[in-house]
């Protein structure tokens, strides 16, 4: 992500030891973090990890059992009305009126937030231009990508200082997802702080800093680059003609610590550095794999996530 022209020195959002239970389930435990002004902060993790609960606490919709949270200098419990004027929120479930047209939805939310479309048109122009041909269509009849764009417009209409986007790209195809992230980049350039959650690990790269969340806890908070740098073992991409057989054979090798399929190659780590890629090549040939391709690679966020999340706890 390009450097923002805004200095990242003011804390916009912070959480201190937040705990929250839902019935017997500990939805969040001991969450602490800070988000700086003008930053895109990603909360990355699978469904059920606690992302939505965290977003609801930060948007003043839910009370934490323990811990404090501040948004734009206001306490989420005591000053919730001040916070509500300053933030834009896009809940996880698609949240517009399906039986209202694009135009009617926008007008409605503009009025609810005491503004007009004209007043903040510059903020939504880039997105709205794409929606304009469908402005008299009912929101329910839009495609997934278009719905997300409309929801973003509605969340932006009152020129919020902080934008909370809860899984804006879930279920959206890769092209629309990419476009959506391009839009977020533009909003960041206008100085808006963005907190966004996603289950898609590849989107982590587009954030300034990310928090990896699993089972209600942050397992790491850092920039994507630092997280990747922190990957302990050398990582190899291995491919051959018969990928499924290759996977099984790699798993059977006792020097292999982990092996996961990653698209066109399997990502493999070894228990210690004494085992090299040449050794692996020999092993695979002994199993009848010729035409192998082994190369050392830089890990992706997904590699890091799997490495950090405790095995067996995969939920």
């Amino acid at each position: 992500m390009a450097e923002s022209k805004y200095q990242m020195n003011r804390i916009m959002v912070q959480g201190h030891n937040i705990f929250r239970k839902y019935g017997k389930v500990q939805a969040l435990s001991d969450i602490s973090f800070e988000v700086m002004e003008g930053e895109i902060f990603g909360v990355i993790g699978p469904d059920g990890a606690g992302k939505t609960t965290l977003f609801r606490i930060l948007t003043t919709l839910l009370l934490a059992d323990q811990g404090q949270a501040m948004v734009n200098g206001f306490d989420v419990v005591e000053d919730y009305t001040s916070i509500r004027k300053k933030i834009g929120y896009m809940p996880g479930k698609f949240s517009l009126y399906q039986d209202l047209t694009v135009q009617e939805n926008l007008d409605f939310f503009a009025t609810v937030f005491n503004t007009t479309i004209e007043e903040n048109y510059h903020l939504i122009r880039d997105i709205y231009v794409q929606l304009e041909p469908f402005k008299s269509r009912r929101a329910g009849a839009l495609s997934g990508g278009m719905k997300q764009k409309l929801a973003l417009c509605c969340a932006l209409i009152h020129k919020p200082e902080i934008l909370f986007l809860d899984e804006p790209t879930t279920g959206v195809d890769p092209v629309s997802r990419r476009e959506f992230w391009e839009m977020l980049g533009k909003l960041k350039a206008q100085g808006i702080t963005i907190i966004v959650s996603t289950p898609y690990m590849d989107e982590a790269e587009k954030c300034d800093r990310i928090a990896l969340i699993q089972g209600g806890s942050f397992i790491q908070i850092d920039t994507p680059e630092n997280i990747k740098d922190g990957y302990a073992n050398p990582l190899y991409a291995v491919s051959s003609e018969s990928m499924y057989a290759l996977l099984k054979d790699l798993r059977s090798c006792e020097r292999v610590k982990s092996c996961y399929p990653f698209g066109d190659a399997h990502h493999v780590t070894f228990f210690d550095d004494s085992f090299t890629s040449e050794d692996l090549e020999k092993f695979l040939q002994s199993k009848g794999h010729n035409d192998n391709n082994i190369s050392k690679i830089r890990p992706t966020i997904e590699d890091c996530f799997m490495n950090l999340s405790s095995p067996g706890d995969a939920s």
Binding site: D47, M201, Y244
Partner: peptide
């Protein structure tokens, strides 16, 4: 879309079931 929102390691286990 069987794997939407599923965590990375389970997603892979799922594909192993498919294989």
């Amino acid at each position: 879309e069987p794997t939407g929102g599923v965590d990375p390691s389970t997603r892979r286990q799922f594909w192993e079931l498919i294989y």
